[in-house]
Design a protein around this nucleic acid. Structure first.
Length: 276
DNA sequence: CGATGCCTGCCC
DNA sequence: GGGCAGGCATCG
């Protein structure tokens, strides 16, 4: 489900719901989601307090007392919700639950079971496969134009694949990749090394700005995304190409086309986004 | 590198 | 029934 704006919105909405609570117990009905295994998870997490929630790219980092961090990735469909009573009726797709000492319960729902939670010592999360190679956060201070341009120069594959690669820049997924390429007027299949320094600068600025705007709008609910309070985002109203196949381009009225780039559905304007 | 597996629901 | 879906790790 979520890209950076959605994960950030989950982080912000979940924080006041669980911060300060002490975990009494952990349960699951789909062991693969807890990559360390339920027993180890249970043993280490029981009795710890939720101190704060951080985010890195699309990873949610639940900081616990005892020097522990739950690294949570929602993949396509993962969602969190808090219920006030652990015995409230359980939704069909709840696969992991943390029960707190006050009787409330954090539930992780994931119809496709793609999401993962890994327990690590705080500070060691960067050794995990996804976080070890993660690129810069898309902010002015951290997303360096020159480094980005160097990355583009090294790849002759489609620019869309390069910005979807989390080691290039953290947090861009399929929706925002298409949107940013439309905003920057770059064809998604342009070989990355055909882009000029100016193109790189424009695309980098666009990514920073677009993800910030989408975060401000509390994310995009194109399909099923909801934050931790069950609310949709608002940014689906500001999309230009994603899910708009056949509809007129907002700049030139040419119908939006949909193709496949690296097995991912890809929406673009064939007039505004010419291949180089 | 690109392709495949992981899962389930939904829409044609 | 087939194809598709905000993603990633792993395989060849």
């Amino acid at each position: 489900m979520p890209e950076l704006p959605e994960v950030e919105t989950v982080r912000a909405s979940l924080t006041p719901l669980i911060q300060g609570k002490t975990i009494r117990d952990v349960g699951t009905n789909w062991g693969k989601i807890l990559t360390n295994g339920l027993d180890q998870f249970q043993e280490q997490v029981a009795g710890q307090r939720v101190e704060r929630l951080d985010r890195r790219g699309k990873y949610l980092l639940i900081r616990l007392s005892g020097g522990l961090t739950i690294v949570s990735h929602l993949r396509m469909e993962g969602k969190y919700e808090l219920v006030q009573h652990a015995d409230d009726p359980m939704h069909k797709f709840v696969h992991v639950w943390l029960t707190f000492t006050d009787g409330s319960q954090l539930r992780y729902r994931d119809s496709r079971k793609f999401g993962r939670m890994t327990l690590v010592k705080t500070g060691e999360e960067m050794h995990l496969s996804g976080l070890r190679t993660i690129g810069p956060e898309p902010t002015e201070a951290t997303f360096d134009v020159d480094a980005f341009y160097q990355t583009l120069q090294r790849h002759k594959k489609a620019i869309k694949s390069v910005i979807l690669d989390q080691s290039t820049v953290a947090g861009v997924g399929n929706i925002y990749a298409d949107e940013c390429l439309w905003l920057a007027k770059i064809h998604p299949e342009t070989p990355a090394n055909h882009l000029t320094k100016r193109d790189a600068k424009r695309l980098r600025d666009t990514i920073i700005e677009e993800l910030a705007l989408a975060t401000k709008a509390r994310g995009t609910s194109a399909h099923t995304y909801l934050d931790a309070t069950g609310h949709k985002g608002d940014f689906q109203n500001q999309l230009h190409v994603y899910d708009r196949k056949g509809q007129p381009c907002d700049r030139c009225a040419t119908p939006i086309e949909k193709i496949k780039v690296n097995q991912r559905g890809t929406n673009f304007c064939p007039h505004c986004q010419k291949i180089k």
